[in-house]
Design a protein around this nucleic acid. Structure first.
Lengths: 202, 202
DNA sequence: AGAAGAAAATGAACGGTGTTCATAAATTTC
DNA sequence: GAAATTTATGAACACCGTTCATTTTCTTCT
């Protein structure tokens, strides 16, 4: 059997992912260095390229784990309140909380770019799409006349809007504007949008 | 006088900015190379570092020009319709149009990061802030009871939301979800939010 | 106008990056 | 246990932004 070799390989992969995760958390995606990762994981520089095709593939695995954690955080909120507006607010609040508590890992999800001409793998796109799925059910309750195509479109739009609010608030770019309370601003936004959707629906 | 030297220096600066702008437009910010820029501008590699402190400063100047063009595009829409909801829709549409027509330059505005520990210069932050100012006036008409602090907060939130919708739609990350019509989706979003703000106001 | 000084232009060189590759070690197979 | 296959190693490679000694160009002063 080849179990010992497999075990060693999987073990190294895990150590590399963990080291990359820690480096991203402390210095951000832009500060990630192959030599730092391999030093932390306790292997030679070249070993990284036996375990993974390149740094991008390793980052994809880190992001995959981050998405799973984020998905779990949202899942917890999705099953709470029954009223769709309250559920959407809870999801937005959870998204903001995760971004705050895992800033660097969360930023890496959206900062990372593949090499030019290389597409993001299908399995990783699917992991991103799950985030949007969480919004479909409450939206369906709110807008019962919509078909699944339109629901998905609204869910993506709502996710993008919430994401944009969280992202720009957590950047340094628009500082000096208004040091407002992000959470109440975000929840007020979701509340107004839900009110608008209700009003238009009727 | 020293005018000839000044003229040459300003001329070189202009050529470098133009070359960087063209390279960003064709290959994106990530594909920007000091050697390509100086070759296009017709000067030696080291000349770039006499005209500018580093690549970041050059990119800031390119982004400054992009922000001016974007600001002009928004200005044109801001003076159109009198009804605040229609004006906000027109601004969102203009923002989407600019992002579509100037994808790489627009993306560079938000992808660019300074070196770790280096802050974005104040004058450039101010240029970004102007974008949000365009939303304040229509929002003030819509929500006459709010003070300027709250208005600025709402304007930033609305800008971030619209920005997020445009950004995620123009990325490759969430493809395969729903090939929806972005413009109608965006305008529907603004319409619903405006309706919600009106409903809550009364 | 011409010499002296200052500023700018040059491109080779430097330090750092991701990735590769010949070589050595370890593991599996027979 | 020997042969074959996979994995580990770290020096070397190509490329990057940036610097620097040197040369060229411009300005200033007599």
């Amino acid at each position: 059997m080849t179990s010992k070799r497999d075990a060693r390989r999987e073990d190294l992969k895990g150590r590399l992912i963990e080291a990359a995760q820690a480096r991203i958390q402390s210095t951000g995606l832009a500060g990630l260095r192959a030599r730092d990762i391999t030093a932390d994981a306790g292997c030679a520089l070249g070993a990284l390229y036996i375990a993974f095709a390149d740094l991008d593939e390793l980052i994809l695995h880190v992001n995959s784990i981050t998405l799973a954690r984020l998905g779990a955080a949202l899942e917890q909120e999705a099953t709470g309140a029954a009223e769709p507006g309250a559920r959407l607010k809870a999801l937005a609040k959870a998204y903001l909380g995760f971004a705050r508590d895992n800033r660097m890992a969360w930023k890496a999800l959206f900062e990372h770019r593949m090499a030019p001409g290389v597409a993001v793998p299908e399995w990783h796109l699917a992991e991103h799409a799950v985030l949007i799925q969480h919004l479909v059910e409450p939206l369906a309750q709110l807008l019962p006349t919509l078909d699944s195509h339109d629901l998905l479109a609204r869910a993506r739009t709502l996710f993008s809007a919430v994401h944009g609010i969280v992202m720009i608030s957590l950047e340094d770019r628009f500082i000096g504007l208004a040091p407002t309370d992000l959470e109440s601003e975000l929840l007020g936004f979701v509340g107004a949008l839900v009110a608008g959707l209700k009003a238009e629906r009727g």
